[in-house]
Amino acid sequence: MLKLEGCELQNGGFSLAADLQIEAGQRVAVIGPSGAGKTTLIEAIAGFLPISRGRLIWRDQDLTAMAPGRRPMAMLFQDSNLFPHLSVAQNVGLGIRPNLRLNATEQAKVQAAIDRVGLKGLEDRKPAALSGGQQSRVALGRVLVQGRDVLLLDEPFAALGPALKAEMLDLVAALAAESGATVLMVSHDPADARRIADQVVLVAEGLAHPPVATGPLLDNPPPALKAYLG
Protein backbone atom coordinates (compact mmCIF):
# COMPACT_ATOMS: atom_id res chain seq x y z
CA MET A 1 0.00 0.00 0.00
CA LEU A 2 1.23 3.51 -0.89
CA LYS A 3 0.39 5.95 1.88
CA LEU A 4 0.65 9.73 1.99
CA GLU A 5 0.19 10.58 5.65
CA GLY A 6 -0.76 14.20 6.27
CA CYS A 7 1.49 15.40 3.48
CA GLU A 8 1.97 18.98 2.49
CA LEU A 9 3.77 19.64 -0.80
CA GLN A 10 5.14 23.00 -1.79
CA ASN A 11 6.09 24.05 -5.29
CA GLY A 12 7.00 27.70 -5.54
CA GLY A 13 4.22 29.66 -3.88
CA PHE A 14 1.77 26.82 -4.41
CA SER A 15 0.90 24.19 -1.84
CA LEU A 16 -1.01 20.93 -2.04
CA ALA A 17 -2.36 18.80 0.81
CA ALA A 18 -2.51 15.03 0.39
CA ASP A 19 -3.69 12.42 2.87
CA LEU A 20 -4.57 9.23 1.03
CA GLN A 21 -3.81 5.55 0.49
CA ILE A 22 -3.48 3.56 -2.71
CA GLU A 23 -3.79 -0.22 -2.69
CA ALA A 24 -0.88 -2.15 -4.20
CA GLY A 25 -1.53 -3.33 -7.73
CA GLN A 26 -4.12 -0.66 -8.48
CA ARG A 27 -4.06 1.47 -11.59
CA VAL A 28 -4.91 5.01 -10.55
CA ALA A 29 -5.46 8.07 -12.71
CA VAL A 30 -4.64 11.51 -11.27
CA ILE A 31 -6.99 14.01 -12.86
CA GLY A 32 -7.96 17.59 -12.23
CA PRO A 33 -7.85 21.10 -13.66
CA SER A 34 -4.69 22.44 -15.20
CA GLY A 35 -2.42 23.95 -12.54
CA ALA A 36 -4.19 22.13 -9.69
CA GLY A 37 -1.03 20.21 -8.79
CA LYS A 38 -1.21 16.84 -10.57
CA THR A 39 2.46 16.98 -11.55
CA THR A 40 3.38 18.33 -8.10
CA LEU A 41 1.80 15.23 -6.52
CA ILE A 42 3.59 12.81 -8.87
CA GLU A 43 6.96 14.56 -8.50
CA ALA A 44 6.70 14.52 -4.73
CA ILE A 45 5.99 10.79 -4.79
CA ALA A 46 8.92 10.26 -7.17
CA GLY A 47 11.18 12.28 -4.88
CA PHE A 48 11.94 15.30 -7.04
CA LEU A 49 10.04 17.62 -4.75
CA PRO A 50 10.65 17.53 -1.00
CA ILE A 51 7.65 16.76 1.17
CA SER A 52 7.54 19.67 3.60
CA ARG A 53 5.26 17.93 6.11
CA GLY A 54 3.95 14.40 6.56
CA ARG A 55 5.28 11.00 5.48
CA LEU A 56 5.36 8.89 2.33
CA ILE A 57 5.15 5.17 3.04
CA TRP A 58 5.34 2.12 0.76
CA ARG A 59 4.72 -1.29 2.34
CA ASP A 60 5.67 -0.09 5.86
CA GLN A 61 8.85 1.55 4.55
CA ASP A 62 9.26 5.30 5.02
CA LEU A 63 10.37 6.80 1.71
CA THR A 64 10.06 10.46 2.69
CA ALA A 65 13.80 11.19 2.69
CA MET A 66 14.93 8.59 0.13
CA ALA A 67 16.73 9.63 -3.09
CA PRO A 68 14.61 9.32 -6.29
CA GLY A 69 16.74 6.57 -7.80
CA ARG A 70 16.53 4.44 -4.65
CA ARG A 71 12.76 4.50 -4.37
CA PRO A 72 10.89 1.43 -5.61
CA MET A 73 9.51 3.58 -8.40
CA ALA A 74 9.98 4.11 -12.10
CA MET A 75 8.90 7.37 -13.69
CA LEU A 76 8.21 8.56 -17.20
CA PHE A 77 8.37 12.32 -17.73
CA GLN A 78 6.44 14.48 -20.18
CA ASP A 79 9.51 14.58 -22.43
CA SER A 80 13.25 13.75 -22.50
CA ASN A 81 12.78 10.18 -21.32
CA LEU A 82 15.64 8.90 -23.47
CA PHE A 83 19.30 9.82 -23.86
CA PRO A 84 19.81 10.81 -27.52
CA HIS A 85 23.40 9.53 -27.67
CA LEU A 86 22.55 6.02 -26.44
CA SER A 87 21.04 3.22 -28.53
CA VAL A 88 17.68 1.60 -27.83
CA ALA A 89 19.39 -1.33 -26.10
CA GLN A 90 21.53 1.00 -23.97
CA ASN A 91 18.58 3.18 -23.01
CA VAL A 92 16.74 0.06 -21.85
CA GLY A 93 19.86 -1.36 -20.22
CA LEU A 94 20.14 1.70 -17.97
CA GLY A 95 17.11 0.34 -16.14
CA ILE A 96 19.11 -2.68 -14.95
CA ARG A 97 22.52 -1.21 -14.38
CA PRO A 98 23.18 2.53 -14.69
CA ASN A 99 26.84 1.77 -15.52
CA LEU A 100 25.71 -0.36 -18.53
CA ARG A 101 28.05 -3.23 -17.63
CA LEU A 102 25.55 -6.02 -18.26
CA ASN A 103 26.24 -9.75 -18.00
CA ALA A 104 24.73 -12.27 -20.39
CA THR A 105 21.60 -12.84 -18.29
CA GLU A 106 20.96 -9.13 -18.03
CA GLN A 107 21.51 -8.64 -21.74
CA ALA A 108 18.98 -11.38 -22.41
CA LYS A 109 16.57 -9.56 -20.11
CA VAL A 110 17.07 -6.33 -22.09
CA GLN A 111 16.48 -8.19 -25.33
CA ALA A 112 13.33 -9.79 -23.95
CA ALA A 113 12.01 -6.39 -22.88
CA ILE A 114 12.73 -4.91 -26.31
CA ASP A 115 10.90 -7.82 -27.94
CA ARG A 116 8.02 -7.46 -25.50
CA VAL A 117 7.44 -3.78 -26.34
CA GLY A 118 7.57 -4.62 -30.04
CA LEU A 119 10.94 -3.14 -31.04
CA LYS A 120 12.71 -6.33 -32.16
CA GLY A 121 15.38 -5.45 -34.70
CA LEU A 122 15.70 -1.79 -33.64
CA GLU A 123 18.15 -2.43 -30.76
CA ASP A 124 20.97 -0.37 -32.25
CA ARG A 125 18.93 2.64 -33.37
CA LYS A 126 19.33 6.03 -31.74
CA PRO A 127 16.14 7.78 -30.48
CA ALA A 128 16.22 10.39 -33.28
CA ALA A 129 15.77 7.57 -35.80
CA LEU A 130 12.56 6.35 -34.12
CA SER A 131 8.96 7.54 -34.34
CA GLY A 132 7.25 9.08 -31.33
CA GLY A 133 5.42 5.86 -30.56
CA GLN A 134 8.62 3.84 -30.81
CA GLN A 135 10.36 6.24 -28.44
CA SER A 136 7.58 5.69 -25.92
CA ARG A 137 8.03 1.95 -26.33
CA VAL A 138 11.76 2.24 -25.55
CA ALA A 139 10.93 4.09 -22.34
CA LEU A 140 8.36 1.43 -21.43
CA GLY A 141 10.96 -1.27 -22.17
CA ARG A 142 13.21 0.38 -19.62
CA VAL A 143 10.39 0.55 -17.08
CA LEU A 144 9.89 -3.18 -17.69
CA VAL A 145 13.49 -4.14 -16.88
CA GLN A 146 13.56 -1.79 -13.91
CA GLY A 147 10.95 -4.04 -12.32
CA ARG A 148 9.92 -1.42 -9.77
CA ASP A 149 6.81 -1.75 -7.64
CA VAL A 150 5.29 1.59 -8.62
CA LEU A 151 5.11 3.18 -12.04
CA LEU A 152 4.58 6.95 -12.21
CA LEU A 153 3.48 8.46 -15.52
CA ASP A 154 3.45 12.24 -15.98
CA GLU A 155 1.56 12.32 -19.28
CA PRO A 156 4.43 10.78 -21.27
CA PHE A 157 2.10 10.03 -24.21
CA ALA A 158 0.48 13.47 -24.41
CA ALA A 159 2.16 14.21 -27.74
CA LEU A 160 0.89 11.03 -29.43
CA GLY A 161 -2.28 10.67 -31.46
CA PRO A 162 -5.43 9.19 -29.86
CA ALA A 163 -5.01 5.73 -31.38
CA LEU A 164 -1.31 5.57 -30.54
CA LYS A 165 -1.94 6.92 -27.05
CA ALA A 166 -4.62 4.29 -26.49
CA GLU A 167 -2.18 1.64 -27.73
CA MET A 168 0.48 2.83 -25.26
CA LEU A 169 -1.98 2.93 -22.38
CA ASP A 170 -3.06 -0.63 -23.19
CA LEU A 171 0.59 -1.65 -23.23
CA VAL A 172 1.10 0.02 -19.84
CA ALA A 173 -1.95 -1.82 -18.48
CA ALA A 174 -0.73 -5.14 -19.86
CA LEU A 175 2.81 -4.69 -18.51
CA ALA A 176 1.48 -3.64 -15.12
CA ALA A 177 -0.86 -6.64 -15.02
CA GLU A 178 2.07 -8.98 -15.82
CA SER A 179 4.34 -7.55 -13.13
CA GLY A 180 1.68 -6.59 -10.60
CA ALA A 181 3.01 -3.01 -10.50
CA THR A 182 1.00 -0.16 -9.04
CA VAL A 183 0.41 2.59 -11.61
CA LEU A 184 -0.15 6.28 -10.95
CA MET A 185 -0.79 8.23 -14.09
CA VAL A 186 -1.41 11.94 -14.56
CA SER A 187 -3.98 12.68 -17.21
CA HIS A 188 -6.11 15.55 -18.36
CA ASP A 189 -8.32 13.25 -20.43
CA PRO A 190 -11.11 11.37 -18.59
CA ALA A 191 -11.13 8.86 -21.46
CA ASP A 192 -7.60 7.78 -20.44
CA ALA A 193 -8.84 7.16 -16.93
CA ARG A 194 -11.80 5.09 -18.13
CA ARG A 195 -9.52 3.14 -20.43
CA ILE A 196 -7.05 1.72 -17.92
CA ALA A 197 -7.62 3.13 -14.42
CA ASP A 198 -9.58 1.31 -11.73
CA GLN A 199 -9.53 4.37 -9.52
CA VAL A 200 -9.19 8.13 -9.79
CA VAL A 201 -7.45 10.62 -7.51
CA LEU A 202 -8.99 14.04 -8.03
CA VAL A 203 -6.60 16.96 -7.50
CA ALA A 204 -8.40 20.28 -7.14
CA GLU A 205 -8.41 23.40 -4.97
CA GLY A 206 -5.16 22.59 -3.15
CA LEU A 207 -6.21 19.10 -2.17
CA ALA A 208 -5.48 15.60 -3.50
CA HIS A 209 -8.62 13.58 -2.73
CA PRO A 210 -8.50 9.89 -1.73
CA PRO A 211 -9.00 7.52 -4.67
CA VAL A 212 -12.51 6.50 -5.72
CA ALA A 213 -13.73 4.06 -8.36
CA THR A 214 -13.37 5.50 -11.85
CA GLY A 215 -16.76 4.76 -13.43
CA PRO A 216 -19.07 6.14 -10.71
CA LEU A 217 -16.93 9.26 -10.21
CA LEU A 218 -16.91 10.19 -13.88
CA ASP A 219 -20.58 9.33 -14.30
CA ASN A 220 -21.55 11.45 -11.33
CA PRO A 221 -18.82 14.07 -10.84
CA PRO A 222 -18.59 16.34 -7.77
CA PRO A 223 -18.74 20.12 -8.50
CA ALA A 224 -14.95 20.69 -8.75
CA LEU A 225 -14.60 17.90 -11.28
CA LYS A 226 -17.76 18.89 -13.08
CA ALA A 227 -16.40 22.39 -13.66
CA TYR A 228 -13.29 20.84 -15.19
CA LEU A 229 -15.08 18.26 -17.33
CA GLY A 230 -17.58 20.83 -18.56
Binding site: G47, F48, P68, G69, A74, M75, S80, G95, P98, N99
Partner: peptide, 14 residues
Protein backbone atom coordinates in the same frame (compact mmCIF):
# COMPACT_ATOMS: atom_id res chain seq x y z
CA UNK B 1 18.77 14.89 -18.08
CA UNK B 2 19.34 15.49 -14.38
CA UNK B 3 15.96 14.20 -13.25
CA UNK B 4 15.98 11.24 -15.60
CA UNK B 5 19.44 10.31 -14.33
CA UNK B 6 18.31 10.65 -10.71
CA UNK B 7 15.30 8.45 -11.30
CA UNK B 8 17.59 5.78 -12.77
CA UNK B 9 20.07 6.13 -9.90
CA UNK B 10 22.78 7.27 -12.32
CA UNK B 11 25.26 9.00 -10.06
CA UNK B 12 28.87 10.03 -9.62
CA UNK B 13 31.37 8.41 -11.91
CA UNK B 14 28.71 6.34 -13.70
Amino acid sequence: YGRLALSLDLQGWT
